[in-house]
Design a protein around this nucleic acid. Structure first.
Length: 107
DNA sequence: CCTATGACTGGTC
DNA sequence: TGACCAGCCATAG
């Protein structure tokens, strides 16, 4: 597992996020261990939109999708999350108490 | 090898 | 979870 690039480790954690749930960059970074939220954001930034990683479920600590570079993409992310059943409030934020990921399950 | 860059976080008011 | 300040560390050229 340590032989795997940090990127793939981050992707592995993101793939573990169940549908209808969202996690923060810090959450992912803590689960990966040895990397910070910026590493997660940068790793996801390098991900293609058609990747097998549900990067859309990764948002910032404010409960909102990141502005991303360029501006577009964040709208797509919100759209994908809504398709998963995640509700956004009038301020474009999600309810951590409702869709907050508790982690890779305690099994 | 060194430099630049980046989808962030945390504590405080 | 509003806003502000400074730090963090891996990846690419």
């Amino acid at each position: 597992m340590q032989d795997t690039p940090l990127y793939e480790r981050i992707y592995a954690i993101v793939r573990q996020i169940p549908p209808g749930k969202v996690a923060t960059y810090g959450q992912i970074a803590a689960l990966v261990g040895g990397c910070t939220a910026r590493m997660v954001g940068y790793a996801l930034a390098a991900l293609p939109f058609d990747s097998d990683v549900p990067w859309q479920r990764v948002i910032n600590r404010h409960g909102k999708v990141s502005p991303r570079s360029g501006g577009a993409g964040s709208a797509l992310q919100r759209q994908l999350l809504q398709e998963e059943g995640i509700q956004f409030d009038h301020e474009g934020r999600v309810d951590f108490a409702a869709v907050g990921w508790d982690g890779p399950e305690l099994v």
